[in-house]
Design a protein around this nucleic acid. Structure first.
Length: 112
RNA sequence: UAAGCAUUUUAGACAGUCGCGCAUAAAACUCGCAAGGGCUUAUGUGAGGAAAGUCCGGGCUCCAAAGAGCAAUGAUGCUGGAUAACGUCCAGUGAGGGAAACCUUAAGGAAAGUGCAACAGAAAAUAACAGCUAGAGUUUCUAGCAAUGGUGAAAAGGUAAGGUAAGAGCUUACCGCGAGUAUGGUGACAUGCUUGGUCAAUGUAAACCCCAUUUGGUGCAACGCCUAAAUAUAGGAAGGUUAAGACUGCUCGUCAUCUUCCUGAGUUGGUGGCUUGAGGUAUAUGGUAACAUAUAUCCUAGAUAAAUGACUGUCCACGACAGAACCCGGCUUAUAGAUUUGCUUAUGCA
RNA sequence: GGCCCGUUGGUCAAGGGGUUAAGACACCGCCCUUUCACGGCGGAAUCAUGGGUUCGAAUCCCGUACGGGUCA
C-alpha cells in the first residue's frame, strides 16, 4: 500500500469517527474524513462482539486485501475507517460481498 | 461377521500469479527537535492440538534476598512412587457400576466439642403412641415387655432355633460389627485365629470444627534503559535519632520522617525484557510404569491497530474446532474426517 | 494480556439447606361500574446450564455458557 498509512493511535481514530461522514453498505460500513495531505490513512476496527478471533482476523484480512486491490484507483487526501455492520452475519463474510460494498462506498464518497 | 472397551497418529496436498510480518545482506533516498523509524531489492523463515478457558503449579520481575517466630486465612486429604513443582501423572488398596474387556471414585476424623435433621411420627437421640402379658379392678390402675403395627430419607444389628405369662442378644448357631493377635506386604490393606451380647450412643465434616501437609503479595499493562518541551513540598546517596508512622494481626527486627550533598520522577515517543528452553528427535541402559541417566543430532514465529490472504488449475476423504502476544508443566472444555495397536462378548465355520 | 463480579415471572428484585419460591410495577382473565380509572380475586418461574455432595439444592462444591466491571 504505497500511498496509504495505517491509523494507530486512539486519538486518531476518535477524531475521524467524530468529524467524519458515515457511509453504509450491506456488510461493512465506513467513516471518511478529508484532509490536505498527499496520503491516505486507513483504519480497521472490528468489535470483540462480532465474534471470536478467527472471524475477526478474517474480516480484517478481507478488508485489507480488497483495499489493496482498489487502492490504485483512489484519490489521495482521505482518512477512512472500516467497521463491520452489527446486523450482518460475520460467518458469511466473503471476498465478493466486501468488494461490492467497498466499491459503492468509494463511489458515494467521491474517492474514485 | 456384529456389538463394544481402551489406545496411537494426523489435522487437506501440489503448482502458478499478486500481497503481508520478522531476520540477514546491499545501495541510495527520506521522516523526526531527539531517541529512533520508513521506503526498495534479494535470500531465508513464519500459529495450535487445543494457541481457547484462566482452573492449578513453576520460572522470571518488583515490593527489604517478601527478614525471624506465633497466630489467622486459603488449599489439599486412601497408600507408595515420579517430578523443578502441583490440586498433575504412574503403580496399587478399598468402595460402587457393567455379562465382560473395562470404567467411576474430594476415599482422614462423628466416644474432642458445637450446630442442624423441615413435614409426618409416641419418640430424631439418655425411646414407648397403638399394643402384648400378669394381677387388681371395671369405660380404669399397678407391674413387666420392646417382638408386631403405623410415620419417615433415617427408628437402636439380620436370619433361624430354643426360651417365656408375654417378650427380649435372654441363650445358641451362622452372617455382620468391634477389640486383640499371627502371617504376608515398604504401605493402604488382605487372610487366618482368639475374643466381646455393656454389640447404648443414627446421619451430616462439598455445616462449623479437629488432625496431617502446605500457603507472603504482585503480575510483562511486571520491570530496566534512552528521549524533545515544560514543571513539582519530586527522586537518589551519606550521616544521625527514637515518640507518633510504615512493613502483616501480634512479638522481635528493619525502614523512614530530621540534617547535608547531588539531580531530575511521572506524563509523551522509542527501545530492551522477547525467545536456547526443567527444548525437540533418535538410540542405549535402569525401572512394572510415570520417569531418570548417557550419547548423537537439530534450532523451529516474536508482532505492538498486531503478520498466513486473494485469484487460477489438478486430486481426494470436499476440509471440524479454532489464531501465538513473557515462557514452561498440567487440568478443563471444543473438534469433521481419516488412522495404529491390543482386548471383551455373541454367533458361524475349520 | 491480567484481575474481579453477576445470572431468580416481561422488568426491578428478596430469599444463603426444609411445607405450594416473598414483594413491587407491567401483562392476561373474572368481579365491581352505564363505561373508563381506582379497588378486589386469580393466572403466569425448568431459580442461566451440565454434573456431584445430601434424605432433601435456587442455596453447598466442580465444570460450561452468557453478561458486566476494572488495570495504560
Amino acid at each position: 500500500m504505497k500511498k496509504t498509512k495505517m491509523l494507530k493511535k486512539n486519538y486518531e481514530f476518535n477524531s475521524v469517527l467524530k468529524k467524519g461522514i458515515y457511509y453504509g453498505g450491506s456488510h461493512i460500513e465506513a467513516v471518511i474524513r478529508t484532509h490536505s495531505l498527499d496520503t491516505n490513512f486507513l483504519g480497521i476496527a472490528i468489535s470483540k462482539k462480532v465474534g471470536i478471533a478467527v472471524i475477526r482476523n478474517r474480516i480484517k484480512r478481507l478488508i485489507r486485501e480488497n483495499y489493496r486491490l482498489l487502492e490504485a484507483e483512489t484519490k489521495t487526501g482521505y482518512s477512512i475507517i472500516f467497521l463491520w455492520k452489527k446486523k450482518a452475519d460475520p460467518r458469511r463474510a466473503t471476498f465478493e460481498s466486501i468488494e461490492k460494498d467497498m466499491k459503492t462506498i468509494f463511489k458515494k464518497s467521491g474517492m474514485v
